[in-house]
Structures are given as structure tokens and as C-alpha cells.
Amino acid sequence: MRAPRFVALGDSLTEGVGDPVGNGWRGWAALLAEGLGPGAEFTNLAVSGAQTRDVLERQTPVGLALRPDVVSVVVGVNDTLRRTFDIHAVAARLDAVYAAFRARDAVLLTACLPDPGALLGLPGALARPLARRQQGVNTVVHALSERYGAVHLHACDGAWVTDPGMWSADRLHPGERGHRQLAVRFHALLADAGIATGAAPGAEPRLPEPSRSAVLRWLATQGTAWVARRCTDLLPQLLALAAAEVRHQARGTSARLDLGASRAVASALAALTAPERADAA
């Protein structure tokens, strides 16, 4: 019996940003790979800045060619930071990626994630539109994970999100402790399913957590530019969305925005063809 083959797809979170080793990044997926079993093979295809389109069009063909036993698909935050955000497109792309790997009998790993507005500490009127988008992505991931029998990690809230010790200096990516926490939690799910047979990754970091001065220094020298690069095309739209938030809040009609977002998610999921209907067609 050959060693398990693990392929990771996604963005900077899976690439390992925030968990430096040598001149590169390690991250939760590499830590998890060590606990899958003896001789486990690991390939990380994740790229910083990737959106669902990148995962579908660029990473998935390469991943399928590697014939993985286990594949992780954790992506979507970067989609929410773009002017072109479309929950219908996000749902369709994730559906296609999940279906492709499950058709090859790969064990699928997924996760829902915290919204970037909260992590950045944005004012409410700016944070709520981003939170609504991320909640929509998470709802899609939940639904599709259930549809395809994925091993799903609920990582969008809880103590780990609000614990500063889990995060790197940029406060957008987990630090070593945070990456280890993700790896430990994924390993526990896989071990319960009889998939991970190796030892669980260690939960304690080997490097010191970033100091407050390091966080402030990063924000002053790189943080603003990093956010600007990620949100260049979104900013004008985000300001308009924030203005709408303020207007609805003043009128007491904020629930309409939530309802509209929920309906868009429901419509996006309804537009997808369920596997059993596709097989019967």
C-alpha cells in the first residue's frame, strides 16, 4: 500500500503565510501532512492572492494530475475583497472543484473562515458588507461540504479567532500557533474518520509570538500597502456599500441588506445541479 498523497489548494492561508521557516513559509497544511501517515507525500499548490477562479482554472488541473488521496480546498476570502465579487460565481467554481476531486475518490478537506473586516478591525459600516460577503461564502462552503461529504473544519469563529496569540503581525494570517491550531483540528477530524494514522502535530509554537511593537511596525511599514493591494478595485465600491449601511441603519432597515444577501446565497446554491440529478440526466 502506497503512502498517502496530500495536495493543498488555496490562497495565502494554505501557502503558509504567517508561519515562516527558513526563507519560505510552512503553514497548517504542511504540518498536517506530517501526521497523515508514514511517508506521506505533500504538494502545496496554494498561492498568495488566489481567488476561486485561480483554484478552479490553475490549481485544480495540476492537483488532479497528482492523483491525491487527500485534497484541501480552502479559498474565498480574496473573492470578498474584490469589486467583482459574485456569490453565484463563487458557488459554481467551488462546486466544480469539489466535484472534480470527489469524482476521483479523494478525501476533501474544507473550512469556513473569519471575515477580513473583523480581523482588520474596520469600522462597523465598512466591516458589515465584508462580513456579509464572507458569511455568504461560508454558507456556500457549508452546503457544498455536506453535499460532497467533505471533512469540514468550522474555523470562522470561536476563541482562536479573537486570541491575538494565534495571529501574525499582519493580523490577517495566523501565526505559527494559529497554523498549528488549524493543523491540530484538521488532524483530529481525520483521525476520527480513520484517515490520519500518524501523530498529531504539536500545538505549541517553536518561535516567539510577534510583539506588540512588531505588529505596530508591520502596520506602519507594510500593512497599509498590503491592504491597498488587496482592495484597490474594491475601495470605491466598499465606500458606497458603507454609505448604504449608514442609510439603512438610520432608517432601521438594516435587515433588508441581510435578507438580500441570504436570498443571493440561496439562489446561488439552487442554481447548482445536485450530483444525483446530474447522474440521472
Rank of each mutant, 00 (worst) to 15 (best):
H142K: 07
H142N: 13
S145M: 04
R147G: 03
Y148V: 05
G149M: 01
G149W: 01
G149C: 01
A150N: 08
A150F: 15
H152P: 12
H152D: 05
H152E: 14
L153H: 04
L153I: 01
H154C: 04
H154K: 07
H154D: 10
H154M: 02
A155G: 04
A155Q: 12
D157H: 12
G158L: 01
G158Y: 03
G158R: 08
A159C: 12
A159N: 12
V161T: 06
V161M: 14
V161N: 05
T162V: 07
T162N: 08
P164Q: 03
M166D: 07
M166N: 11
W167T: 02
W167S: 04
A169M: 13
R171G: 10
R171D: 15
R171V: 10
L172E: 08
H173Y: 07
H173D: 03
P174D: 00
P174E: 00
E176A: 01
R177V: 05
H179D: 00
H179C: 00
H179K: 01
R180Q: 09
Q181M: 13
Q181F: 15
Q181R: 08
F186D: 02
H187K: 03
A188Y: 04
A188G: 03
A188N: 06
L189C: 04
L189K: 14
L189P: 02
L190V: 00
A191W: 02
D192I: 00
A193C: 02
G194P: 03
I195E: 03
I195H: 05
I195L: 04
A196D: 01
T197H: 05
T197R: 05
G202F: 04
G202K: 10
E204D: 09
P205T: 00
P205M: 00
R206F: 07
R206V: 15
L207W: 14
L207H: 08
P208F: 07
P208W: 03
P208A: 02
P210R: 01
P210N: 01
S211N: 05
S211I: 05
S211T: 15
S211F: 12
S213C: 08
S213Q: 15
A214L: 07
V215A: 10
L219E: 11
A220P: 15
Q222C: 07
Q222I: 09
G223M: 12
G223K: 14
T224Y: 13
T224I: 11
W226L: 13
V227R: 08
A228V: 07
R229W: 15
C231A: 15
T232S: 15
D233K: 11
D233I: 06
L234P: 14
L234R: 07
L235D: 09
L235E: 14
Q237P: 11
Q237G: 11
L238Y: 05
L238Q: 11
L239I: 11
A242G: 14
A242Y: 05
A242W: 07
A242C: 10
A243V: 08
E245Y: 06
E245P: 08
V246R: 15
V246A: 11
V246D: 10
